[in-house]
Amino acid sequence: MAVPLVLVVLPIGLLFLLSGLIVNAIQAVLFLSIRPFSKSLYRRINRFLAELLWLQLVWVVDWWAGVKVQLHADDETYRSMGNEHALVISNHRSDIDWLIGWILAQRSGCLGSTLAVMKKSSKFLPVIGWSMWFAEYLFLERNWAKDEKTLKVTFLPYLHTKFDCLFFNVACYDFAQWGLQRLKDFPRPFWLALFVEGTRFTPAKLLAAQEYAASQGLPAPRNVLIPRTKGFVSAVSIMRDFVPAIYDTTVTIPKYSPQPTMLRILKGQSSVVHVRMKRHAMSELPKSEEDVSKWCKDIFVAKDALLDKHLATGTFDEEIRPIGRPVKSLLVTLLWSCLLLYGAIRLFQWTRLLSTWKGVGFTVAGLALVTAVMHVFIIFSQSERSSSARAARSRVKKD
């Protein structure tokens, strides 16, 4: 990591990690003290706490890097955003698609109640993964034999251990009601995001998808990967009764814009992202699991053609909707900065940490740790570093 970048990463990393640890500590206390008695109250408070943390990342994208997100949506979709529960499905085009989703959720007023289906390793990330765990994100292992049970049973954090599952089994509860059904009484409109391709788009993964399509007699994709529909089908079957809509989201980067990455954002380098959202009423989906799977696959075939058209014209057909750049994230980041700066000054005054070599060494070690954690964040976000990307590249090289 270059020295100039370290000078940028250190203050941003310190701000996010320290404020995040404060939020995590409060979340843990509330999880133990309030959630057992009032799940609704816990969720309302946790929504506020999660937003205090996520808004810092929104600030980095909006104000530090100045990434421009252009939303295309019809009237029905635009009016509905943030006013109803929704299952959001999207292609996984860039390293920061999840951040783009957060920006749109923040503009729609539901950032704190935005959830996602994530790979299991995400929950071990310091601060951000822990906060997602408290916020009831769903973590999967990309193994359907295990993930089917997770989707139907273990959505709640306290049902992640064998002991807890045994406890509820002894209590003779119906496991299905402890799964995604538990979102039925969520106190505010939520978005549950699901990247049905299962991994981020790369040229190597596209080639592997095209080879698979050819072997199965399927349409060969050009701009998307073939969706893995089992998780989607399971989510639809469980949530059909209380989630009124599916938001079909298409993300793409115009030809004239560089690909947005976490590294570029931290460097303060801007990009442009075009997003098209289309609302589909859940009631319009077919009833059988096989037909729901086909519906999802057809959506991605249409999405592929839509991206072909965007590549040729540089835009989508739907109207461009104003989403602005609210100052809320800027104010929250300034508030955290002032609070933590004051706390740091008082700490150094009280402990005289910099007055001894031992204290200086401890401080330098802490800063090195923050830099290392931020480096892990950057590496974790890079699609070319993912295990599925390495597997796809290896398979292509063998062929």
Score class of each variant (00 low, 15 high):
T199M: 07
L347N: 10
L353T: 14
K309N: 05
S381M: 15
E290D: 03
W54S: 02
S329A: 15
L115R: 06
L306V: 06
K149Q: 11
W133H: 12
F348K: 03
W133Y: 13
V251M: 04
F124M: 06
A213H: 04
P254S: 10
T351K: 13
A116M: 01
I89N: 00
K294E: 02
G112E: 02
A344R: 03
V8L: 15
A116D: 04
G101A: 09
W357V: 13
V60K: 12
D95Q: 06
V251W: 00
Y42I: 13
G82F: 13
P219F: 08
T249C: 05
S288G: 05
K120P: 04
I299E: 10
V233C: 02
E290I: 05
Y342R: 11
V127K: 02
V275I: 08
W144M: 11
W59L: 12
E211D: 11
Y137P: 01
A372I: 04
A176V: 14
A50N: 13
A281C: 07
A305W: 03
S293D: 14
K68N: 06
I34Q: 07
P227A: 02
A105K: 04
H92S: 13
S38E: 11
L21G: 14
I378F: 07
L125E: 00
G324F: 13
A86F: 04
A171P: 10
D317S: 10
S215T: 14
T154N: 14
P326D: 14
R107L: 02
H92E: 12
A365R: 08
R44D: 10
K120W: 03
W133C: 12
A344E: 06
K309D: 08
T114R: 10
K184M: 04
G198P: 03
I238R: 08
I100M: 12
N169L: 11
S237M: 11
V236S: 07
E211W: 10
T315Q: 09
F155G: 15
G361E: 05
D241Q: 14
